[in-house]
Design a protein around this nucleic acid. Structure first.
Lengths: 100, 100
DNA sequence: TTCCTATTTCAGTGACCACTATATCACAAT
DNA sequence: ATTGTGATATAGTGGTCACTGAAATAGGAA
């Protein structure tokens, strides 16, 4: 799989969004999603092997961070998608509010 | 499927490359690939429904062309990938030549 | 009409891949 | 040591999707 296909996967896109600016432990990343820890760990290993994230050991934990250099060509698209997602969420909430 | 996932698919990426600058009939597009006409036609219908290509009737034939407006955010990435593919081909040929 | 070509559509198949559950590994703390 | 916690690895499953083969549609030419 090439980089574009890897980051096109919605879950991986979201993970990259979480670790774009700040490093995060695998467990903290996993807690944001509605799937098992293992599923997230697999995504992380895919991203790791593609060199799209970097890992730092911290005792027991692994701290992940986006490899912004490797992702530079895709940065604009990713950011657009992340803000679109936020906007979607915002609209959903707005609609929920107004339907009460 | 969102746009990014749609264009991440290698075959669709190649198809978009063919019809980026020039319009092409479905049969001419299909003849460039090693799959059945039907397979290519399905990809075209996916791209059509996502509004990533435009179609023009010409008698019997359908002339396809990339919708550059809709694809603008992805143009840079696509072009990079197309030239990478060409470069790969060039290198392959080069190696083949020198190994004779 | 009938025939031919261009294209779409659709049922069926196989492969891939995201996920679950479980086993295993590694570090930390008691 | 042993218990707990964070994480990776692996076998198995289900769903999705690109593809094939074949039928259906549509236009052009005889």
């Amino acid at each position: 799989m090439d980089t574009l296909q890897l980051i096109a996967e919605p879950r991986r896109r979201e993970i990259l969004g979480l670790v774009w600016d700040d490093e995060m432990a695998a467990s903290d990343i996993a807690s944001r999603f509605d799937v098992t820890f293992g599923a997230v760990s697999q995504h992380l290993s895919v991203l790791r092997e593609a060199n799209l994230v970097t890992v730092k050991k911290d005792g027991n934990r692994r701290l992940y961070r986006a490899n912004q250099d490797a992702l530079a060509p895709y940065e604009e698209i990713l950011k657009t998608m992340w803000s679109d997602t936020l906007q979607h969420l915002a609209e959903t909430i707005e609609n929920t509010e107004s339907n009460r």
